[in-house]
Design a protein around this nucleic acid. Structure first.
Lengths: 234, 234
DNA sequence: GTTGCCAATATGTTCATACATATTGACTTT
DNA sequence: AAAGTCAATATGTATGAACATATTGGCAAC
């Protein structure tokens, strides 16, 4: 007997994963039915189901009713990573976190901002610039725009002590959004705020957050100081 | 009665999510026990369990035995994204995919490569440079190193017709790895291969792939042409 | 041959029950 | 007080049974 002892669904998952890695079941292959596997492993079909579901969620298996369970051909690696609060990210590096509000204006959106936020020209927007530092050194420049029509309370919020991100997390329920990562050359503004050369290669994350009614709450550009690396576990 | 009809676990999940978004249950709050919720929703505890597990997997709830289910304080947004084959990524943009092997050498690793691959100086490494094009224009420069001790077959593989990535996916079972995203200034080599200015800001993804024995199979640096944006759904 | 229908089948999901396990908190002992 | 003990409790998980649902493939009607 190959299988030492299959008790829980995690054991089933481990065994199935082993067979996948060993290429005993190759990409494109059809797996035995849940019932057969349950019989082989000596457990309930429910248990096998749980295990296969978990693997399918990871993207390694494809399951269809009546069609059975199939090994995915191009196992697209799916990475999941967290987007922490900047403060926590810095503190986790054992460095001292600092925050400074550089600029705050309330205005009509420019064309560029309108496109990013999907709002019209009459919208009232709070525009912010803030710098997060690690051990007194510039870590990331935060450029943020908040739609006052969606978050009226932002007009009176004091962003000089608490970063917009933390304020928003605390005060506004949000649901979805999207994230775009890119590389940008440092503009004059970036270079001054981050104390780096103009034209330096900067890592940028732009994030749009929507509420449950699908209205844009806020858009933020995080422009990191040169040398920043975003690590992701696979 | 607020709840129209709770049949399946997805309904329970939706209702719980609604209450989280509405801040009926605030960050830090303790939820009612599974049994209580099951009673309220008129379904089995198993069903509630399934729903809460799913939400916890998304990172919005924290569950501990005996401790109950708690709303996470800082709902770290967790993003999941796929890392497609470059060919598929380009084809999905409705552009014509092209591939060209620029250089191939078999050598001892340099110090930089040793650090990245965690191998010693006597290792035998296949070093590759390849260019992926979209509509004939440079899309991404692939710099790859393969450890022949781990993948002997790579010595005889013909990478002039098939990209290393696709060859590896087909021939080598792998399990884990890590990924680092960053911004880099274009080196002379980068500028020439990607037909861009030297010093331009380039988006780079560096990926290390390990096999089941935790040995480094391959390290790849993907240096994208200027303007590349990596989009991620949240 | 083409179309339409039906039965077989594999996964999806619910349910009640039972037991496992971690953790809390009260109570007891030192 | 401090430390140890133990029962109560909420989640974690297994099970068998049942029904739901999608999909396949064959058979029949046209």
């Amino acid at each position: 007997m190959r299988v030492a002892s299959i008790n829980g669904w995690q054991d089933v998952q481990a065994e199935v994963l082993r067979r996948l890695h060993e290429r005993l079941w190759k990409p494109g292959d059809l797996l035995p039915s849940e019932a057969d596997l349950a019989a082989e492993f000596g457990c309930a079909r429910t248990t096998v189901n749980r295990a296969l579901q978990a693997i399918a969620d990871e993207g390694l298996l494809e399951r269809r009713r009546r069609g059975g369970t199939r090994v995915v051909v191009n196992p697209e690696r799916r990475a999941t990573f967290n987007i922490p609060l900047i403060r926590l990210e810095i503190e986790q590096l054992q460095r001292e976190y600092g925050y400074r509000l550089l600029k705050r204006r309330q205005q009509r959106p420019s064309k560029a901002v309108r496109e990013r936020m999907l709002v019209d020209a009459e919208a009232s927007i709070v525009s912010l610039r803030a710098l997060h530092t690690a051990d007194e050194k510039p870590y990331v420049l935060e450029k943020r725009w908040i739609d006052l029509a969606v978050v009226p309370a932002a007009a009176d919020a004091d962003f000089s002590v608490q970063s917009p991100n933390e304020w928003l997390v605390e005060h506004v329920p949000f649901s979805g959004g999207d994230l775009v990562l890119s590389a940008q050359s440092a503009s004059d503004e970036d270079a001054e705020a981050l104390s780096c050369e103009k034209g330096a290669a900067l890592f940028m994350a732009e994030r749009r957050t929507r509420n449950t009614q699908d209205a844009t709450i806020t858009v933020v550009q995080l422009v990191y100081a040169p040398g920043y690396r975003m690590a992701i576990d696979l």
